[in-house]
Design a protein around this nucleic acid. Structure first.
Lengths: 307, 307
DNA sequence: GATTTTGATGAAATAAAATCATGGTTCGCA
DNA sequence: TGCGAACCATGATTTTATTTCATCAAAATC
């Protein structure tokens, strides 16, 4: 018999193009999804996906995807209504602290989507840098903090969002562009262009350059477009999330290369007060963040609980 | 997590007014449904039904019922489309053989509903009486036969529809109306008014009077309203399904009494060729029969497989 | 051509759901 | 007011469904 789980599986396989990636996104094994798909296809007596890469929906699969897209929002709306009926009428205020510049790229659209779902929740952004970001939670100055590491703090719950790759950006004719990937030493003689943020928030510095004892010259600017412009003008190198550089690569003035073999991957978590973790209006915000990120950001990957 | 099963449970409890009856209709135990409901209520942190008789939906339960009514038809429509995509293009013809007069009461509305779901299936009614009704299937003169007993024939699949009570009908001032229920001997001195059908189809005669050696005077007429009129005019007694007499009881000219202690209950099955049993367009007709019968007929009960 | 990635599959482990057995409550009825 | 019937809740057990594990074969990549 058809279940909602099946519909989610079909959505995920279609969205990711492969059973393996769909499984990662659903926090299940590839085997589990393969079994489910086989069983569903047997039930309907027809294939639901053509086994090509990326997996392609058959007519039957299309029909089920249409069903999923039809009923999923209805179910979610009902569950929100239930949550409203059950919810204790606590402060419906959501102060979001975010320290990474590029996070705004996906945070703003996600907030727009969330606003339509929970119009009664008033959102606010807490800017600036703090020595102890999660401390903002206990100090009641924020209700949710976007962080790059899951601590083991009592009173704070860390919800994994996703992981993304940091790419080194350089002018297209730059000598380093000949390399398959860059290493710490490659930055030694260059100028590193960054956002104006403490080193602790710059993954390239914190996790690659500093451990290798490399301290390149630095230059700061606020806007992503300005960083790209300086790089294109051969003023130095930069390191940006893969999704942030993608739109600039097609013009050809800059090129991107992985950092270290295997690439430099960063994680993002949403930290909330442990007391609030069960609040559905808060939980739904985190779900929306993930959903919108996977929908709009290329090249990001699911992140499992274990930070 | 919410499942479609949960929605069906809520629908069934609401439709029947009790967990016990809902369980019977879903072919599950009362315990299974109770566990499910408790778990669902725990999940949403609120009761979904007030435990009164009949069970009454809370606001949360209402919301879930609304969801169920919203998405159930969409899911069923999708599954029909899938069945059409998968189905071998066999004869989309459905010849229905029916021998019981009162069956038309619920068969016609059910056929109307089915027609909207499977417009491409051409329905036809096969009338008349036959010594071997299920023989019509093998003889390819009918594709579905409504019968009152599940045989053990190879090549024929019997699908349970429902059970109903046969009530004895008499004029309101009739002496027998003083009894709580009637027995075979009570009919001995009376005239029995029936449809013009062979005795094998008259449950009162076949299962009560004949075994007791009681052979009352007989009179036949085609229409239910005529039978009721004759009874009201003290021309004799009749036995009709509970749902068929219900509308006449409120006027007060006739009264109905159970037959034997515990009542005389009759079963109905849909018989189809075993080869056709897996055809979804045919199966869906049977599902529609059950669904419409339970929706419109008062006092009928679920019938389990074991005939 | 070697290596990696991917999907399928059978067996085993785990989780979920249903049943069985039973107890307590409510309601109708003598 | 006491009895029986109908009904829901619940813990223990059984059954069924789902997931994982361990592999294999095929396809894609280098």
């Amino acid at each position: 018999m058809l279940t909602l789980k099946h519909l989610r599986v079909i959505e995920a396989i279609h969205a990711t193009g492969s059973i393996t990636r769909a499984a990662a996104r659903l926090y299940l094994t590839q085997s589990a999804l393969s079994h489910q798909l086989v069983a569903l296809e047997a039930h309907y007596g027809m294939p639901l996906f053509d086994r090509v890469r990326p997996m392609r929906l058959t007519a039957g699969g299309e029909r089920l995807l249409a069903l999923a897209r039809d009923i999923t929002p209805r179910i979610e709306a009902a569950e929100r209504d239930l949550a409203r009926l059950a919810g204790n009428p606590v402060a419906r205020r959501l102060r979001i602290a975010v320290e990474c510049h590029t996070c705004y790229d996906w945070l703003m659209p996600a907030m727009d989507v969330y606003r339509t779902r929970w119009p009664e929740v008033e959102m606010d952004l807490v800017g600036g840098f703090h020595a102890d970001p999660t401390g903002l939670l206990a100090a009641d100055r924020a209700d949710l903090v976007i962080v790059s590491e899951a601590g083991r703090q009592r009173d704070v719950a860390f919800e994994p969002l996703f992981r993304y790759e940091m790419l080194a950006l350089m002018a297209s004719a730059h000598p380093l562009a000949a390399k398959r990937f860059l290493q710490a030493e490659d930055f030694a003689a260059e100028t590193l262009i960054t956002y104006p943020a403490p080193d602790r928030l710059l993954d390239l510095v914190r996790r690659v350059l500093k451990p290798a004892g490399v301290h390149p010259e630095r230059r700061q600017t606020e806007l992503t477009i300005a960083i790209v412009q300086l790089v294109a003008s051969r003023k130095g190198l930069a390191a940006l999330p893969a999704w942030a550089v993608a739109p600039y690569l097609e013009r050809g003035y800059v090129v991107a290369r992985p950092i270290r073999s295997g690439g430099l991957w960063s994680d993002l978590y949403a930290a909330v007060r442990a007391n609030d973790a069960a609040q559905s209006w808060l939980n739904d915000f985190i779900v929306t963040l993930r959903e919108q990120a996977f929908m709009s950001l290329p090249g990001i990957e699911p992140l499992t609980e274990a930070g």
